[in-house]
Design a protein around this nucleic acid. Structure first.
Lengths: 148, 148
DNA sequence: GCAATCAGGACCCGATTGGTCCGGATTGCA
DNA sequence: TGCAATCCGGACCAATCGGGTCCTGATTGC
């Protein structure tokens, strides 16, 4: 798998749409939901998480909404993943997260994945949300273009 | 998260142990289970998957067991991950896997994660199981060494 | 004062994973 | 030739986790 959560996927979409439509103003959660085609509660949830992480800024009140705190080019993908999926670590038993294992003595994988985590972290840190945003992203359906 | 399954973790352990103890012979699944401290059915399951992927070779019969088909140095981590967790792809909607989305027109993330998948794939392909095996792996417990 | 919006949490449902077990096939040995 | 040991393949169940929804409160502008 190595799959990250759908929320992260949604986050990228929302962030992209935020930068597209932002013209000095703010966008509301329902507005973003309509623009992205996602459910309103889900979009709201994503925005709340992103706001918590400082990637977007929420403004309450009648004319409230959300606003980017930084341009997407200055927003590495790792920030979004970390915000939503937590720290980047492939296994449950990472450096300092564990602390209690039923069989710590016999557990043969302690700390072993660190280089892997590091490699992934490095690979991801070179990608910004802007890099994902400018991908064409609308390609003809693969099954149509090249039916397998 | 970005977490991969525990089975992959176990696989690395089993493979490492397999190379350690192998001296031209084979190791049985129960033997490996005892050596790794994992459950016998689980080890058996891992070995079956690895055998399916061609990473190990199972020999039936009375003096049967499992044997590595290649040295761990020639076994990239991606092979193990692919064998157990399936193809490396971060989202459900990857290049050719989808084909049917309820809202394909409004889905704004189509094919967007490809560069990310590629980056991760590249980062992981440079790591072999041997690289993980030779990590000290037994460090003093983090909570003891540096209580947070 | 009212309406609109964000903020935070609780909650439930579904899916995926982890783990176990069983019967069958194959091989070596007595 | 029979037996025992082992792998092989599948089905099966329980549990954890993530996805998604909803509700109530706090804040702000009109």
């Amino acid at each position: 798998m190595l799959r990250l959560s759908k929320l992260t996927d949604y986050a990228v979409v929302v962030l992209t749409r935020l930068e597209e439509a932002e013209e000095g103003g703010v966008l509301t959660a329902p507005g973003l939901a309509a623009a992205t085609g996602l459910g309103e509660p889900t979009v709201s949830k994503v925005l709340k998480i992103l706001s918590h992480a400082g990637l977007v800024e929420g403004r309450r009140g009648a004319a409230g909404g959300y606003r980017l705190t930084r341009p997407l080019e200055a927003m590495p993908l790792t920030d979004v993943i970390t915000a939503i999926d937590g720290p980047i670590a492939l296994t449950a038993c990472v450096d300092n997260a564990a602390g209690f294992c039923d069989a710590e003595a016999t557990c043969p994988v302690r700390g072993r994945w660190d280089p892997v985590n590091d490699a992934i972290r490095r690979a991801l840190s070179g990608i910004s949300i802007a890099d994902l945003a400018r991908v064409p992203a609308i390609v003809p359906h693969p099954e149509v273009a090249a039916a397998e």
